[in-house]
């Protein structure tokens, strides 16, 4: 069955969050393949784009993905195993920082972006990350819906709290 999010306020079940994963051809993508080979389950809302190296991800792609409808972006990084760049983990951290700043500037919660090192055999680890991230995004969805509703009510009452519903 398709994994459904917890019923939103009002009782309507919603679809599983769409998560964009940036993997790497030689390290994390084989790990994600192995999760499939082992028939480990996670939400079909997870979609993967494989890159040569984590350090080649543009922060603007992450913002674009969120704008287009992905609720979260997960960077399945090479960690310290990158065959290209010795300082790949450091570069990836910088990309995440920049992307999170970009998300905030555009009114999105920075928690919509996560990163973890996924090795070529980290199948269970990957599935666990996906399930955890899906749950977190569902919770974020509910939290933001509640904040938006509160802001709407406050607005109707003429005293909108500063910052309420500012992120999406």
């Amino acid at each position: 069955m398709t994994v459904l999010a917890a019923p939103a306020e009002g009782g309507t079940a919603t679809r599983a969050p769409r998560i964009l994963v940036f993997s790497t051809n030689n390290i994390s993508d084989p790990g994600i393949d192995l999760a499939g080979s082992n028939h480990l389950h996670y939400s079909p809302g997870v979609r993967v784009i494989a890159m040569p190296c984590t350090s080649g991800i543009r922060p603007s792609w992450i913002l674009h993905a969120i704008r287009q409808g992905f609720e979260g972006v997960f960077i399945a990084s090479d960690g310290d195993e990158c065959a290209y760049l010795a300082d790949c983990a450091k570069r990836a951290s910088r990309i995440v920082s920049e992307a999170q700043a970009l998300l905030r500037q555009n009114g999105y919660d920075a928690n919509r972006l996560r990163m973890a090192a996924i090795c070529s055999v980290c199948a269970e680890n990957f599935a666990k990350h996906m399930n955890g991230f899906s749950d977190a995004l569902v919770a974020l969805r509910a939290k933001e819906a509640a904040a938006a509703a509160a802001a709407s009510q406050a607005s109707a009452g003429g005293d909108a709290p500063a910052g309420a519903g500012a992120t999406k």
Partner: peptide, 25 residues
């Protein structure tokens, strides 16, 4: 397009979700 390891094999519990995902991929 990888629709075996990253779609059919990992969503054996959800053929409908797997099909939608395959279309997107």
């Amino acid at each position: 397009a990888n629709i075996r390891e990253q779609v059919s094999w990992t969503h054996t519990n959800d053929p409908e979700g797997a099909t939608h995902k395959a279309i997107g991929v």
